[in-house]
Amino acid sequence: MATESANGVSSPELNERDVVITTNDNRNFTVKIGVARVSKTINNMIQDLGESLDLSSGIPLPNVDGPIFEKVLEWCEEHKNAPEIKVEQDPHTRERKWFTMTEWEEEYFRKFLSHLWDLAMAANYLEIPSLYYYTCQKLAERIKGRTPEQIREMFGIEDDLTEEEKAEIRRTNVWCTY
């Protein structure tokens, strides 16, 4: 989080100010700067623009649409003072450990289950590590145990493998389902 002011105002005071964020469908969201700063992308914009930041004319987000940004904001509100997410790895295997979610977070993903893909994309662009990692974990949970056909259907993925390629993979994978 920035400690320098954007408009010559101290950081805690600035965090309480409102900023207008415009999404790609021209929807304006009036958000507290402290909440918007959960996104590293927006935080960097605020810092970069500094004195020239016009709080009323707003920050454009050409890559995120309104309905998704609304959901992202809900996350930011809840995580505005949360410490940076810690990605832990097993020292021996270097495998990433699973995150434990709070009840609120579980409920959040239950509510927006059908928008996980959009949330992951938005979290990636807006650089919100907590939302990004957690959404990816949720996506992994969703595809667990699914067949390739079900995964393709679920995410609208095009099947561009030839029959020969598929047969070859099936042959090498056969032991996974013995």
Binding site: A140, E141, I143, T147, I151, E158, D159, L161, I169, N173
Partner: peptide
Amino acid sequence: MVFDHCSPFDLLKMRQVN
């Protein structure tokens, strides 16, 4: 990132998606 959270059996099966 999603694959990081998948079981190895699921991961091997992913090759059949595309």
